[in-house]
């Protein structure tokens, strides 16, 4: 019934949705950090730590439930995140340096721990939810809806919950105030350092879930440098999405689609005029980073040329430690 083009499109969609969920989760974690004024450049390391502990849980500790394995990965990332939060929020050390340290150290740690486990297949994977026969009859709907539960959590439940808390509750107002104007938040009696600390650790746990999800669904085995730049793409997605939960989902989907376009093209050996398969593959692997760069530059450029500015979207106190005396 469907021609080859439709099938190809559907296979890209079916692969892009889980692939993008990794970026959705990491970007959501990073966004939560940045919403309270903490710039966490360590996403790459958190993805690695989340992934390697999910691998260890599954292969070595005989954890049979993917949910539990993911929680273990999240917990490990949160422990690293607690150190990060202590250094950046309590000690108030330079967030760029500590973030890079986390990226470096997290990748080093996860590669070292995963080193002997490269290639061992993981069997505790998330199964796909059956959306019901009403939907699976249509190939198009099936490609979209026949996904595992984490996809539904990452795309709908988590952003909705974060949106509701941030924008519809009094607590959320204080959380945003801590990121925008910690002095004002402090003046009305909210615990600035406590909120920063809590949301930093929470964000790192969600970023860890991104790594755990990778090895529990997408590439069900450990390989070194597992994040492969997705952590940095996630940070760019947050900027692109103007720190808004559902825009993060849309941005991540765009970049995830580019990444899976690359893998689908490689798997099928597609060619374009002037490009053989090798060239096309390298060109496509560059594409997400180039597009990410353009996505960061475009709003600033548009603002410069007199269009509506988006420069004020960033939390005003981003990457600035809070000292009460300097209020």
């Amino acid at each position: 019934m469907f021609g080859i083009i439709d099938n190809a499109f559907l296979s890209i969609v079916a692969a892009a949705i889980p692939a993008s969920a990794v970026i959705v989760l990491a970007a959501t974690g990073a966004m939560l950090n940045e919403r309270v004024g903490v710039l966490n450049l360590g996403q790459e390391g958190l993805i690695g730590v989340g992934a390697v502990f999910a691998v260890i849980a599954s292969l070595q500790w005989n954890v049979r439930s993917p949910w539990l394995a993911m929680l273990i990965g999240m917990f490990a990332a949160a422990i690293i995140g607690t150190i990060f939060a202590f250094a950046t929020v309590v000690i108030r050390a330079n967030q760029v340096l500590i973030g890079l340290a986390l990226a470096l150290g997290g990748v080093g740690l996860s590669n070292q721990l995963g080193n002997g486990r490269t290639g061992s297949p993981i069997s505790t994977l998330f199964g796909k939810l059956d959306p019901g026969s009403a939907f699976t009859k249509n190939q198009f709907l099936e490609a979209f809806l026949h996904q595992d539960p984490i996809v539904y959590i990452a795309y709908i439940i988590l952003p909705a919950a974060i949106w509701f808390v941030l924008f519809r509750t009094k607590h959320g107002l204080l959380v945003r105030a801590v990121g925008e104007s910690p002095g004002a938040a402090d003046a009305v009696g909210s615990n600035v350092l406590g909120i920063r600390f809590a949301y930093t650790v929470l964000g790192t746990a969600i970023s860890g879930a991104a790594g755990a999800y990778m090895v529990l669904t997408i590439t069900p085995t450990w390989s070194s440098d597992i994040a492969r730049g997705r952590g940095w793409v996630a940070l760019a997605v947050v900027i692109f999405a103007a720190w808004k939960p559902f825009r993060v989902v849309a941005g991540a989907l765009l970049f995830g689609a580019m990444i899976s376009l690359d893998t689908t093209t490689q798997a099928r050996g597609w060619k374009l005029p002037f490009f053989n398969a090798v060239n096309l593959s390298f060109f496509l692997s560059m594409l997400p980073y180039v597009v990410t760069l353009i996505a960061i530059l475009a709003p600033a450029g548009a603002a410069k040329f007199g269009r509506k500015t988006r420069a004020t979207d960033a939390p005003a106190s981003l990457a600035t430690p809070y000292f009460r005396e300097e209020r």
Partner: peptide, 12 residues
């Protein structure tokens, strides 16, 4: 890998 891990801790 360990050296990069140590780098991270030293940078902190």
């Amino acid at each position: 890998y360990i050296i990069f891990g140590i780098y991270g801790v030293v940078l902190v």
